[in-house]
Amino acid sequence: MQRGRISGLDQARSIAIIAVVAVHLSFQFPHLPQWATVLARMGQYGVQLFFVISAVTIFMTLDADRERYRAASHVTARFYIKRFFRIAPLYYVAIVAYGAMSWYTYNFDADHASILGPHDISDVVLNLLFVHAVSASAINNVVPGGWSIGVEMLFYSIAPVIFFFATSRARLVVLTIVLLLACAAFLATGACGGAALECNVRNNSFFYFWPPVQVPCFLVGIWCWALFRPYLTGQARLGRAGIGITLGTIALCGVATAVFGVWMGRANEYAPLVAACGSAALVLVCCSEANQRLMGRIAVAIGRESYAIYLWHFIFAFEALYLFKHSHMLATHGPLLSLAVFVVVLAVTLAASYMLSRLTDILIQRFASRFARGLLERVDTTFAFRQTASARVE
C-alpha cells in the first residue's frame, strides 16, 4: 500500500481498462484470428472487474471513515461528497465533448455516421442527474460507455445503507439474498416476460446494461472485502495453494463467462455475475502478488487514470474506425498482420488516452478535488461542533 492506495487494486484496474479498450477497438479488425477475436471481445467484462474493485474500494473507505468519525450521517456525507466530485466533473465534460463530436459528424461529415445513438435533451438531463441507467435512450447514447457510470452511481446511492446494515456476516447474507431476489424479479418481469429461466437477453442491449443484471457484481465485491480483507490490504499473502485455487477460479469463470456471453451467448444476463466472481479472484491475485518493478509501476499508473482513460479512449477508437474505414488498409491483410496492427493501435490508444487523462486531471480534476476537500473540511467542522455542543448539554 502506498499513499493510502493499494497498488494491487490499481494493477487490477489497469487490466480492466486495457480489456475494455481492446474490445472497443476489436470491431475495427474483422480479420483477427478467431482466438484473438474471442479474447478481445472478452474484454467487455473488464467493466465487471471495475465494479468488483469499486465495491472493495468503497467498503474500504467507509470502514476507514467509520473508525475516524462517530456519526453514520457524517461518514455518509463524506462518502457522497468524495464520490460525486470524483465522478461528476469529468463526466460532465464528457457529455459536452461527445455531444459536440456527435453534432459535428452528424451535420458536417456526411460520410461519417453520428458517433452516438438517438437521444434528446431529456436524456442529457438524466445523465446530468446520474439516473440514466433506467432509461433505454439515455443509458448509453449521451456518453459512449456511460451505462457503467450510471450503474456505478446507482450503487453509490445505496452503498452507505448497505454498509451500515451489513454489520455482520449474517446480515450480509440476508442482504445478499434480498438483493438477488429483487434483481431476479426485475429481470423476470422486465426482460424475460415473466419467465426468467427462458430469458434471452441480447448482449450489449438495454436489458444487459440495466442495473438488475449488473448490481450483483457489486455484491461479489462486497463479499470479497468481507472475506479476504487481510489479503486485499497486504496484511496477508496467498500461499501456493491459495494462488492455485484463485487461478483455477479465474480460468473456470473465464470459460463460463465466454460460454454464457460473447463466445456462445447462452445466457448473457448471467455472464456479468460469473465474470464478477472471476474478477474477485483476479483482484486477490493482484493484491497478493503486486510488485513495484517497471511493469508493475506502469500498471499502477494506468490504473490510477483508469476512469479518465475509460471516458476518453472512445475518441481514439472512433478515430481508428474513421481511419480504417476510409483507408481500407486492413481489407486484404491476413490474420497475423491484422493482429500485429491491432496490438500497435491498442498501445497507441492507451498512451493517447493516458496523456489526455493527465491533461484533464490538471485542468479539471485537481480543481474538483480541491473544492471537495474544502467541502469535507466544512462537513467535519460542522459535525465536530455538533458533537461538542451535544457533549456540553450532556
Rank of each mutant, 00 (worst) to 15 (best):
residue 213 V to D: 11
residue 244 G to P: 03
residue 249 T to L: 14
residue 205 S to T: 03
residue 187 L to F: 03
residue 273 L to V: 15
residue 160 P to H: 03
residue 188 A to H: 00
residue 298 I to F: 05
residue 270 Y to T: 09
residue 282 L to H: 05
residue 208 Y to M: 07
residue 171 R to H: 01
residue 185 A to D: 09
residue 197 L to A: 13
residue 283 V to E: 00
residue 217 C to H: 01
residue 160 P to Y: 03
residue 199 C to N: 07
residue 256 A to H: 11
residue 202 R to W: 12
residue 266 R to M: 15
residue 285 V to G: 02
residue 291 N to W: 09
residue 298 I to L: 15
residue 280 A to M: 04
residue 160 P to S: 04
residue 237 R to G: 07
residue 273 L to A: 13
residue 237 R to N: 13
residue 170 A to C: 07
residue 285 V to H: 05
residue 297 R to C: 04
residue 244 G to F: 04
residue 225 W to P: 00
residue 161 V to W: 13
residue 227 L to K: 10
residue 265 G to K: 13
residue 165 F to Q: 12
residue 181 L to D: 13
residue 165 F to Y: 12
residue 237 R to C: 10
residue 174 V to T: 07
residue 284 L to A: 01
residue 226 A to D: 06
residue 184 A to N: 08
residue 255 V to T: 15
residue 212 P to C: 03
residue 245 I to R: 05
residue 249 T to E: 08
residue 169 R to T: 11
residue 258 A to R: 04
residue 198 E to G: 10
residue 173 V to A: 10
residue 186 F to V: 15
residue 245 I to L: 11
residue 282 L to P: 11
residue 243 I to R: 11
residue 258 A to L: 06
residue 177 I to E: 09
residue 160 P to L: 02
residue 229 R to Y: 09
residue 240 R to W: 08
residue 203 N to S: 15
residue 245 I to N: 00
residue 289 E to G: 13
residue 271 A to Y: 09
residue 231 Y to A: 08
residue 170 A to K: 13
residue 229 R to S: 12
residue 254 G to H: 05
residue 252 L to V: 15
residue 286 C to S: 03
residue 257 T to F: 11
residue 230 P to D: 08
residue 268 N to V: 13
residue 163 F to V: 07
residue 185 A to C: 11
residue 275 A to R: 10
residue 170 A to I: 10
residue 285 V to L: 10
residue 163 F to M: 10
residue 278 G to V: 07
residue 204 N to R: 14
residue 274 V to D: 01
residue 275 A to P: 08
residue 215 V to H: 04
residue 174 V to L: 04
residue 224 C to P: 00
residue 258 A to V: 05
residue 172 L to N: 12
residue 186 F to T: 12
residue 211 P to K: 05
residue 257 T to P: 05
residue 180 L to C: 06
residue 229 R to D: 12
residue 285 V to F: 02
residue 245 I to Y: 00
